Computed example of a mutant assay.
Amino acid sequence: MNLGAFSVSLAVKDITVSKQFYEKLGFIQIGGDVEQNWCILQNGEHIIGLFQGMFEKNMLTFNPGWDQHASNLDTFVDVRDIQRYCAQQGLTLLSEVNTESSGPGSFMLEDPDGNPILIDQHR
């Protein structure tokens, strides 16, 4: 099952300091708004999201419907289908997307070590 674009979402203490650090490693901002305490940085195929005051922990993020350049895919597995599959596999969901809705939606789960995983569809 293709989960879409992959990134690491980092819970940062000071978004400006973190952004400057990752820019020194060659990352450039491709999205978000530092004034709103979030931004998305990319270096080649690698994507990092910086979020100040939004999440308690760092998390793995997958975006159904997007490729690694945040471009829309022609076909993709909808977040509701991914959620249904995860539930059928016996995985515990921490939050759920409304299965009666369509379009954007997200749900969360954790891996066995407590690492949060966000499946976040933007379209």
Score class of each variant (00 low, 15 high):
Y22R: 01
Y22C: 01
K24W: 05
L25K: 04
G26Q: 08
F27I: 00
I28R: 07
I30Q: 03
G32H: 04
G32S: 04
G32V: 02
G32Q: 04
V34Q: 02
V34P: 00
E35V: 05
E35R: 11
Q36P: 05
N37F: 04
N37S: 11
W38P: 00
L41Q: 01
Q42R: 14
Q42P: 00
Q42I: 03
N43C: 15
G44N: 08
E45A: 13
E45W: 09
H46L: 12
I48A: 01
I48Y: 02
L50W: 00
F51M: 09
F51Q: 01
Q52F: 02
G53L: 06
G53M: 07
M54I: 12
F55D: 02
F55R: 07
F55K: 06
F55V: 10
M59Q: 14
F62H: 12
F62D: 02
N63A: 15
P64K: 02
P64A: 06
G65E: 01
G65Y: 01
W66Q: 09
D67Y: 07
Q68M: 11
Q68E: 15
Q68L: 08
A70D: 12
N72Y: 13
N72A: 15
L73A: 09
L73Y: 08
D74Y: 09
D74E: 15
T75R: 13
F76L: 06
V77D: 08
D78I: 11
D78R: 07
D78G: 11
V79C: 04
V79N: 00
R80G: 05
D81R: 11
D81H: 13
I82S: 00
Q83I: 03
Q83M: 15
Q83L: 06
R84Q: 12
R84G: 05
R84I: 10
R84C: 10
C86E: 08
A87T: 11
A87Q: 10
Q89Y: 08
G90C: 09
G90Q: 09
L91D: 04
T92A: 11
L93G: 02
E96S: 15
E96M: 14
V97H: 01
N98L: 04
S101N: 12
G103I: 02
G103D: 04
G105P: 07
G105D: 09
G105Q: 11
S106G: 12
F107S: 03
F107H: 04
F107A: 04
M108W: 08
E110V: 09
E110Q: 14
E110M: 10
D111C: 07
D111H: 08
D113H: 11
I117S: 05
I117K: 04
L118Y: 11
